[in-house]
Amino acid sequence: MDLQLDGLTVVTDGRSLVSELSLDVPSGGVVGLVGPNGSGKSTALRCVYRTLRPSAGAVRIDGDDLSGLSLRRSAQLVAAMTQDGAVDLDFTVEEVVALGRAPHLRGNAALGPRERELCEAAMDRLGIRHLAARGVLSLSGGERQRVLLARALTQEPRILVLDEPTNHLDVRHQVELLSFLRGADLTVLVVLHDLNLAAAACDRIGVLSEGRLVASGAPEDVLTAGLVRDVFGVSAEVVTHPGSGDPQLLYSLTPTGG
């Protein structure tokens, strides 16, 4: 299933957070959204997992407007790894993962054998099976992210959106998470802060600045020294990764314009 942001515009309190954003995420592709803080990345993503309603434009899945679907139906298609903060109740890992089935189950219906297998398979894939009985509040940041990802997989979505999934993760977990996304066989739209990780993990990158898409395309076409200076206000050298051939940025600690 492909995901399409079609002229997406979000206006709150007279301020437009996202303007006329159009971006295609082809079926099975991994597309990254990057941009400085406050550039509207998370806002755009919220429209995809329907916490926000676009003021104009639409999010389309295979051409169908998402807002025409029930929340439940869209949750069967789109899973999200959000930045939701502290949870107060100490659910166990397996309980949280099992909640990924919520969009597929009526009311309080219990999980069937196939669904329990799904949960276990997801926990195995993320290597968290041994944490199953642990309370989520006692987990480290990296473990928690893997639990959320396992929940998203249990949801059996066609599309996965992630809001800064590498936040609070150490290098190893960042790399693991992104390589997992590459191999997940899902249509992925991911907001990332780290341009180098984005360049390595994404087929295409969209760059947002003040709510507008200022560049999009393959990482090597988009991530240029000029764009990084204009959008992020940082001077950087672009080099090619000797192994993968991806563009990588080397930052210098002097502000631009100097």
Partner: peptide
């Protein structure tokens, strides 16, 4: 959380 709830339908 609200965002999680929404994303789960």
């Amino acid at each position: 959380g609200d965002e999680t709830a929404t994303s789960l339908g």
